[in-house]
Design a protein around this nucleic acid. Structure first.
Lengths: 342, 342
DNA sequence: AGGCTGAGCGTAAACGCTTGCACAGACCGA
DNA sequence: TCGGTCTGTGCAAGCGTTTACGCTCAGCCT
């Protein structure tokens, strides 16, 4: 019932081979013929059967995006950047999320995707993660976001430098006990975490400041988690006078915890976030801003380039970071105030 | 190089037809044979070629999700619910976003998706939207989220009732001038908007309260937009003492605008949002909570059902709403206070 | 004993493209 | 004029499945 290439061939008075070549813009087709074929295809409202085309050509015509989460701010943003680039290409975008480890019955992406994609786009996932590492066996081009790996394209920011910048800012404000709200206990499948931890530690070490486990707490990259983490730290013997949260969302939770304890962010405890979430402006949060959509877009472009030029050497691009200073960070108040009560 | 069904057939000592049937769980295969085939396939790490399978069977093996946005809270959430259901199925999830009208070069989804999906999942998009309406011509099953249409499955909430509940709450608190922060000027491709507007209007009419264009402003479903809308309303001759925002994000902006004007949400101006965004708790925002992930999940289930039982009559499911009252809404203060200055 | 049923399996024809190869004719330089 | 190259086109062999149809044989009923 649906049109086939044969119908077009007959109608245009050429062979199916010519139709195929004409429609795909291959060389060695007379411009006149090509145009005629185009017109016929247009008139008959013909589109090639992707299944047949893929079977015959051996190309899958799709790329997979593998992400730990879909609903969270950062990932949605990155995904959006990816989609904007891909929608203009011929490729289908297959979405596959890893999900929480708690979701036991998840089918690992590499199983679901075998033989059906031409390349992978992996967001924030450590390349050794179970279900991710198998991807590299397929020998297809891979563009990594927030991670690196031999032979893969990658796009990201300098997480170490970002974290360092955040912590340095706090140090410059006179803070000496600087807390960290991290994601999950290491090791995690979520990669940037390690680097932000390194940046945090290095900044402290450089300034001869204490790096204590007592100054750290996990916030699981959620608002609630951030709130709990801050609360935990406040309950400890020597609470920090400033904290660096690995994500804005956790920082939001931290702000809330502070308020719940009658403390004013900035004045009593300084907080720096990481991401550049729109909400940070509204909550007056100092944060490290990363160009999230662009990260996604650039990664998608890299993958397209890899697909177009299979021999080309992978590039790694690092996008710039900036810090936006707002009211949540301020000069450390004198000792007596800080260490006083609690 | 890659395994084919023939390799498995040879190795298992059966025909390709039997392999096909065995692997897909079709009847009329001896359990012993089936198991043997399974083992061989497993051992040789064989997976069927989707392209070949699709070509031969005529099924596309994918469903498309069509959404206006990916990065925004509501859509990410819904998408996440969809993905959770679909990942357990055999179907690929093709993601396609409509994007803003400003992005002129977007390829309309129905063009990109022709012949490559078995069904559609459409989020929040009015069925007459350009690029969406063409989808129904394909005669494939469609599950609609937040919309209805003859012959389609649908899942959503009662937007009219939700808006009404919000506004009624404000009325109960004694408010008489109740503002509305809507999305875009109607008509919009984003469907729930109309119904929330109706709920708003009806609640006011029932209470014999004014419905004035002066009490409305567009917030474009963004934080900034919400902020601008609130600011606009505050600048008018008779500002409202309470506002209903069609989304939490716009409500967040409204809260911010109030604070910027030295007004305290709740005490000076009451605000109700819509969605149940996590952040609403942190900003102490009263809101109408909808089960967002579940909406996505249920819609995906509906589509799977439609695919499994092509003759089954479409269902429409309406999920329950609830209101969470927080500090952003409070009894209206006496006239003198309200209408006094400004 | 003969026929009927149904379970289990194989044969082979699609499915609708892509692409290697061959070929005809135009064009060109010697 | 003649071989050579290049352009535009057609032929036909795949690509790796699914599935209609047909066959065999065991079990069962008359």
């Amino acid at each position: 019932m649906a049109m086939t290439i044969r119908d077009i061939a007959r109608e245009a008075g050429v062979s199916t081979a010519t139709v195929s070549r004409a429609l795909r813009g291959l060389p060695n087709v007379d411009p006149v013929t090509r145009e005629r074929v185009r017109q016929v295809a247009e008139r008959l409202d013909y589109v090639v059967s992707p299944a047949a085309s893929r079977l015959a050509s051996g190309r899958a015509g799709s790329i997979a995006v593998i992400t730990p989460y879909i609903a969270r701010w950062y990932f949605g943003r990155v995904l959006s950047g990816i989609e904007k680039v891909l929608q203009a290409s011929e490729l289908d975008l297959l979405l596959s999320s890893i999900g929480d480890p708690s979701e036991t019955h998840r089918v690992p992406p590499h199983r679901k995707l075998r033989r059906r994609v031409d390349g992978f786009l992996v967001i924030s996932l450590s390349t050794e993660t179970e279900g991710v590492s198998e991807i590299f066996e397929a020998d297809l081009p891979v563009a990594l976001i927030d991670t690196q790996r031999e032979g893969c394209w990658s796009v990201g920011i300098d997480d170490v430098a970002g974290a360092r910048m955040a912590v340095q800012h706090l140090i410059n404000l006179g803070h000496e006990r600087i807390g960290l709200i991290s994601g999950r206990p290491l090791p995690t499948p979520f990669r940037p975490e390690e680097n932000r931890w390194i940046g945090y530690r290095d900044a402290l070490l450089d300034a001869n400041l204490a790096v204590e486990t007592d100054l750290e707490a996990c916030g699981h990259f959620t608002i609630e988690g951030g709130e709990r983490a801050m609360t935990t730290m406040l309950a400890r013997p020597h609470p920090p006078t400033a904290v660096f949260a690995m994500s804005d969302e956790m920082a939001f939770g931290a702000l809330r915890s502070l308020r719940a304890h009658g403390l004013q962010p900035g004045r009593d405890v300084s907080v720096v976030g990481f991401d550049g979430h729109e909400m940070s402006e509204h909550l007056d949060l100092t944060t490290i801003v990363q160009p999230v959509e662009e990260i996604g877009a650039r990664a998608a472009q890299s993958l397209l380039e890899a697909l177009d030029h299979p021999t080309r050497e992978p590039h790694q691009v690092t996008l710039p970071l900036s810090m936006v200073v707002r009211g949540s960070t301020a000069l450390r108040r004198s000792r007596t105030h800080d260490d006083g009560d609690r």
